[in-house]
């Protein structure tokens, strides 16, 4: 017989209980008046343009773009690191701009063009940024790499458009493609292996080719 408890409910409750043991003397239990009736999960249709292909999905409103990609479309190249917008592993390009796919809802992207690492290049036809990461050994474990590459592609596009950064000395003049610029522009992508110096070399090389 199936348990009336879902795994998620069990985890949420047990986490609360564990916390409660520690904090029971500090936090009073919520009063019934504070309880808010949550609606039952609601599903909505959404049509995305994923790497050039149209996909229509029926999704729980809570589904992040990241979970839609990984769990519903099975594009698992995009990685879930922190799931809170701090690590950048989930970076994808939406309408050409890099964003954290963990901090946006899939249902908010009706009609949007989404490019993931799978859409940048293929094993037989790598994107120049993918080639450069291989050539410069811009990774160790590889988990942050799809996000690093999507972010780097987005960063070079922002540089091309003349978007300034925190380290840009002159806000109204041309922006040099310096290592300082690239490091600052990629600070939203964390690499726990510490492959940063090789990553910057790879991105510098592609930036030079573009320039």
């Amino acid at each position: 017989m199936q348990s009336p408890w879902s795994r998620r409910e069990f985890m949420a409750t047990s986490a609360g209980l564990t916390g409660g043991l520690v904090a029971s003397q500090l936090v009073s239990a919520p009063s019934p008046a504070e309880a808010v009736a949550q609606p039952t999960p609601a599903h909505y249709p959404v049509t995305l343009n994923l790497n050039g292909q149209t996909q229509t999905l029926e999704l729980d409103a809570r589904t992040s773009l990241l979970d839609a990609l990984r769990e519903h479309v099975h594009l698992t190249g995009t990685k879930k690191g922190c799931d809170h917008g701090q690590c950048g592993a989930c970076t994808v390009l939406v309408n050409g701009r890099r964003i954290n796919s963990c901090l946006t809802l899939a249902v908010m992207h009706q009609g949007d063009q989404i490019t993931t690492i799978e859409g940048l290049g293929t094993p037989d036809n790598l994107h120049p940024m993918q080639k450069a990461f291989i050539r410069h050994d811009g990774f160790q474990c590889g988990y942050c790499t799809p996000g690093q590459i999507c972010s780097a592609v987005g960063a070079l596009s922002e540089l091309e458009k003349g978007i300034p950064s925190h380290v840009t000395a002159d806000l109204t003049g041309p922006i040099p493609v310096s290592q300082a610029e690239l490091r600052e522009r990629l600070s939203g992508n964390i690499c726990r292996c510490g492959a940063y110096s090789n990553i910057i070399e790879a991105v510098t090389e592609v930036a030079g080719e573009n320039g």
Partner: peptide, 19 residues
């Protein structure tokens, strides 16, 4: 209003600022 550009660029990451 360069102080505003500077303040924005000092905040968050590029991915977050794009959204």
């Amino acid at each position: 209003y360069p102080v505003l550009s500077r303040a924005l660029l000092a905040g968050a990451s590029a991915q977050l600022r794009n959204k």
